[in-house]
């Protein structure tokens, strides 16, 4: 395997509604910052890959406008996944693995504020058996949370602890959207939204963008004082229809985690636990020890820019190595309802 490292990460302000900027305007400063951090000029980037989804804005070809933000003139070697930017990072990593590129820019973006996400994400479900029922993302998460409560020793208090800790951690994250000095008791006092979920168990709606620069080989050390080496990256998907799987577990995360060594000496984990109960499921699936610090950034419960949120987990994990002297960290991204698809990657310092 070729050594590939992250050398730069930038993210936009993560906000409820970005009214000043459209998508390209939102991405552009982020991409510029990533270029600057990496010390690489645009012309020195061999490959560009992005992640976004047309249905967030309700317009086809959202990514074509995204391309405007990265300077695609002269033309770029480029690709796009209709997925979170974390999967775009996988594709870019693959281009570096096979030696078709030595440097890559990866970005993800989404303005979830444009639509009613509870209705939009229903369209992500089986169009014969699920979407026609109108079931929405809070309700599907509710079914999953109940399955976890029924099939494990976890309680609603455990969920509230996760929710409270995420909002408290976010207080030290300049980019986070929901920051609050809140306790589990206060959250448990909230009325249910979709029982067993309370509003604080659920993520905010967020607009945002993020970008990461990947570099292969020793050059990464020249460009970044402390690059984060991608020691393993894997993604797995599960069956779609909820009735065909055990929602209280995440076997796809477990398999991907085992492939990359998630159970071994992870100091910090940035995981895409979009709902509080999902952190509990993911922690078990990844085999994280109690000593592992989870989502010091606040995670998706503090800011959830769809199609960028997973890439931001990878970026935040990189920051733990670059800025906080951590040696071995983990990042996780998810896709679909109820953790259907999961990507896990382990990063190490030198």
């Amino acid at each position: 395997m070729r050594d590939v490292a992250i050398v730069a990460f930038a993210q936009s302000p993560l906000v409820r509604r970005q009214t000043d900027f459209d998508e390209p305007q939102m991405i552009m400063p982020v991409v510029r910052e990533a270029y600057e951090q990496s010390g690489l000029d645009r012309s020195q980037i061999d490959f560009v890959c992005s992640g976004s989804a047309d249905y967030l804005a309700g317009q086809p070809f959202a990514f074509i406008r995204g391309l405007d933000a990265v300077g695609a003139w002269p033309p770029l070697s480029e690709s796009h996944v209709e997925m979170d930017g974390a999967w775009a990072l996988y594709e870019a990593w693959m281009m570096l693995q096979i030696g078709h590129a030595d440097t890559a820019l990866v970005y993800g973006f989404g303005k979830a504020s444009a639509g009613n996400m509870r209705e939009v994400l229903t369209v992500e479900l089986d169009p014969y058996y699920l979407a026609p029922t109108g079931i929405d993302c809070i309700s599907t998460a509710g079914l999953q949370a109940r399955a976890l409560l029924d099939n494990s020793d976890y309680t609603e208090r455990d969920m509230a602890e996760v929710a409270a800790r995420s909002r408290r951690s976010a207080m030290s994250n300049d980019h986070a959207q929901v920051k609050k000095d809140v306790t589990a008791e206060e959250i448990l006092a909230e009325p249910y939204w979709v029982d067993p979920l309370r509003p604080s168990d659920c993520p905010p709606i967020t607009d945002g963008a993020a970008a990461v620069v990947l570099v292969a080989g020793d050059r990464a050390r020249d460009l970044c004082e402390r690059p984060a080496w991608i020691r393993g990256i894997d993604n797995r998907i599960e069956t779609h229809y909820f009735g065909t799987r055990d929602l209280s577990k995440s076997p796809s995360t477990e398999v991907a985690g085992k492939t990359v060594g998630s159970g071994d000496g992870i100091e910090v984990a940035e995981i895409s636990s979009t709902f509080s109960h999902q952190e509990l499921i993911l922690k078990d699936a990844l085999g994280l020890q109690d000593s592992t610090e989870i989502n010091p950034s606040g995670g998706p419960l503090a800011a959830n820019p769809l199609m960028a949120v997973g890439l931001i987990r990878i970026g935040e994990a990189f920051n733990q190595i670059k800025n906080n002297g951590k040696q071995r960290v983990l990042a996780h991204a998810t896709s679909g309802h109820c953790l259907q698809q999961n990507l896990v990657c382990v990063l190490e310092g030198d």
Binding site: G134, A141, G142, R146, V194, D195, L247
Partner: peptide
């Protein structure tokens, strides 16, 4: 499993 919706969409 079940999830209670007080205010349907």
């Amino acid at each position: 499993s079940w999830a209670w919706v007080e205010e349907p969409l």
